[in-house]
Design a protein around this nucleic acid. Sequence first.
DNA 1: ATCCTCCGTGTAATCGATTCCACAAGGAGG
DNA 2: CCTCCTTGTGGAATCGATTACACGGAGGAT
Lengths: 348, 348
Amino acid sequence: MASIGIKDVAAAAGVSVATVSRALNGHPSVSAAARERVLAAVETLGYRPNAVARSLRTDQTRTLGLVISDVMNPYFTELARSVEEEARALGYSVIIGNADERPDLQDHHVTTLLDRRIDGLLVSPTDGGSPGMLAAARAGTPMVFVDRWIPGVDVPVVRSDGRAAVRDLVAHLHGLGHRRLAIIAGPAATTTGRERVDAFREALGAYGLPLPDAYIGQGDFQVESGRRVTEGFLDLPEPPDVVFAADNLMALGALDAVRARGLRVPEDIALAAFDDIRWFVHTDPPVTAIAQPTGDLGRAAVRALVDRIEGRTGESVTLPARLVVRRSCGEAALRQPPSPSPVRRSTP
Amino acid sequence: MASIGIKDVAAAAGVSVATVSRALNGHPSVSAAARERVLAAVETLGYRPNAVARSLRTDQTRTLGLVISDVMNPYFTELARSVEEEARALGYSVIIGNADERPDLQDHHVTTLLDRRIDGLLVSPTDGGSPGMLAAARAGTPMVFVDRWIPGVDVPVVRSDGRAAVRDLVAHLHGLGHRRLAIIAGPAATTTGRERVDAFREALGAYGLPLPDAYIGQGDFQVESGRRVTEGFLDLPEPPDVVFAADNLMALGALDAVRARGLRVPEDIALAAFDDIRWFVHTDPPVTAIAQPTGDLGRAAVRALVDRIEGRTGESVTLPARLVVRRSCGEAALRQPPSPSPVRRSTP
DNA sequence: ATCCTCCGTGTAATCGATTCCACAAGGAGG
DNA sequence: CCTCCTTGTGGAATCGATTACACGGAGGAT
């Protein structure tokens, strides 16, 4: 019933628990003979050290916490995956907490993770700083922000800079003849929510284009808000030519809204999104998007965090995003052979 | 530096550590006065119990392990989300391990989770039983299989039965005039990989249709295999009318392959998928799929597992899947108003 | 031959909680 | 007034590892 402990191994190998521990942890002063017998005993007994006990004693869990805003968002899924990969390579496990864009849930996860004494925390904050988050930052737990961050908190940030890509996007749209550009913004409490609007406005400014308030819709990074805001845009006396969604889920909502009116993308209204995901290749039409180097972001964040944990510096990192042109803004991107004369097969 | 421990609370409240522990755990025999002072001390000190120490003593971590085959697959993402939700409601945390369809990685995660002394394990096995998995099952760790399972291992299974839905699908396809039906199968080592082929063959049999070997392509539940198998189908002297992908990612690959040849869905070849995901509504064309009650599955699995952990029975559960008809198999599903005379807006 | 280093090992303290057991105080019942 | 419970409390053992410290013996230097 009770699983095998270090004492059982010690008894089987005919040594003390101290020697077993030393043999298992590669401590130098263990005789070859003793090490041999310990390893043999471990093998035959199928002994596995109790990580809980070890953590209590050593005060380290070799576990990282990752609190993200929304697991169902493919961007964060990919981020989580790369984080876990890099962490594993570095000998750490990852516990993921899904905040679902709710500050209270975010706090719940931060608290739980801290209670479990994780060695470090990776956060993409849902808001401008929930009490639990700020407490964690102050408590001295090694911490790194990824994607989103909280200004004024002294924690390294690993993120991607979309400014250049947004400029490219606006150039692309302008070149296609679009002049009335609208944006579905993310929550003002998030940095990405604000930054993307700023970058968009700035890029518009370079072409002498305005960004009227009516063309800034307030979303919350979820599908439903994309739909709602887009409907608002379509109801305007002078609807925009293009809708730029600040994340992929809101773009999906926008697509819904447009389709529900029997309108078409891009003929009736163009669409672009921040965050490229693989499904955008297959939507009708394929969606032009700004792609973040998600995998690199996740890996860099883990490295920065582990650096901090292990006493090294762990600096902020900013990686560039890039524009991926597809068909949702107009036909300029017709790179495929003009018309491959599709072989119509007979259907019974 | 060292965080606040129960001793500090005891000192601040003027009681012993035993009383603090009792007060915090709702033990009956603590005087109201003592409880009051303890709570006050906890509040002012900002004390949080060390979960590691508690786990060591009580031999329970209030943590569940979830090992899934592929986080990037939206089906599993949704499953993970519902699992975490239900677990949280029941007072448990969840640690997710992503096996990426690799038995060695699956074993790594199972081992790590067991080392951390999780209270129970939820697994959707990648293969027919890797050594670590079988060891875990034998070791007596409470365990429940979800979605996929391993025959011959005495562990409850929470899954959905797609047989009826597959019959509906075949009826739908037959009604549309399709006669040459092919399937992209999942790995034979997984139950879902085998079952879906069996269900398909059986349903075909009811219409007197064969399922020749040439129409069974071996995939691995990943996008790339869907593409490869579909190319094989298209190269056949007599290609199928319909391709049924045994999961959503392989359907995506199939869509790629068809498009790469300049063919169209469903005019040139029809497509259906097992596992419905929200992106299928927006693909070109929207994909007909078999939808599992994913959220219910996740919740039921957690309940079964927690039942086992807490000494109750925890039975197997099978929930029905259902067919969701969209346009990828033909035009029968045109439920929208015949043609909403789209308001063509002028574009500058 | 004596002393001093190392080296390998074991004993016991430690991490921070929970919980068994002993015990004191106070109330009820005889 | 004496016993017997009940109730609240504290001391100390415990969980399973790591690790500081002590110690015995071997080998080298003097």
